Amino acid sequence: MFGLFNSTSKAYQNLKPAEFAAGLRQPGALLLDVRRPDEFAAGHLPGAVNLDVTSPEFARRVAALDKAQPTYVYCRSGARSATAAAQLTGAGFTTVANLLGGVMDWPEKLVR
């Protein structure tokens, strides 16, 4: 699955739902939901960790994560997660993917 990523690039990858789902199946993948806690509570992808990208705590909480862990981010439509993905790559994360279309385009049922 690491073939989706260019190791010489600091940029994150924008992935369609099927590609994103395939990436999540790799061992050790971290799934971040960067929406507000109320949005997360209303329904999220299974196994997701909620880190609100608009929170003043976002950068501090991200700094505690493993930068080498493949990290997959999503939001409602893909806009906030693109912002988060850029922040993660800027913070030194080596493998970051953004879900194009966010949960609005996710084909599977969300969990609560």
Score class of each variant (00 low, 15 high):
M1W: 04
G3N: 06
L4N: 11
L4Y: 14
F5H: 13
N6A: 10
N6F: 02
S7N: 01
T8D: 12
S9P: 00
K10D: 06
K10M: 05
A11R: 11
Y12W: 08
Y12F: 15
Q13C: 02
Q13E: 13
N14S: 14
N14L: 06
L15V: 04
L15R: 05
K16N: 05
P17M: 11
P17N: 11
A18Y: 04
A18G: 03
E19C: 06
E19T: 11
A21H: 08
A21V: 08
A22T: 04
G23K: 05
G23T: 05
R25H: 06
R25Q: 15
Q26G: 07
Q26H: 00
P27E: 08
P27W: 02
P27K: 04
P27L: 01
G28Q: 08
D33S: 07
V34G: 06
R36C: 00
P37K: 10
P37V: 06
D38W: 11
D38V: 14
A41C: 09
A42V: 01
A42I: 02
G43D: 07
G43K: 09
G43Q: 07
H44N: 10
H44A: 11
H44T: 02
L45C: 11
P46F: 00
G47L: 05
A48H: 05
N50D: 10
N50K: 09
L51Y: 15
T54W: 09
S55K: 05
S55T: 03
S55V: 09
S55M: 07
P56R: 10
P56W: 03
P56K: 09
P56D: 14
A59Q: 12
A59C: 00
A59R: 12
R60A: 15
V62K: 03
A63R: 14
A64H: 08
A64T: 14
L65A: 01
D66L: 07
A68T: 14
P70F: 04
T71C: 10
T71N: 13
Y72L: 15
Y72S: 07
V73Y: 09
V73L: 15
C75S: 12
C75Q: 09
S77Y: 07
G78H: 09
G78S: 11
G78L: 09
R80E: 03
A82M: 08
T83R: 14
T83C: 00
A84V: 10
A84P: 10
A84W: 08
A85S: 15
A85H: 10
A86Y: 05
A86S: 15
Q87R: 15
Q87N: 12
T89L: 00
G90R: 04
G90T: 05
G92S: 06
G92K: 03
F93Y: 12
T94K: 15
T94I: 02
T94Q: 14
V96P: 05
V96D: 04
V96N: 09
V96E: 07
A97W: 11
A97Y: 11
N98L: 08
L99P: 02
L99Q: 04
L99V: 04
L100D: 06
L100G: 01
G101Y: 01
G101I: 02
V103E: 11
V103D: 11
W106R: 01
W106P: 01
P107E: 13
K109S: 12
K109M: 06
L110R: 08
V111G: 10
R112H: 15
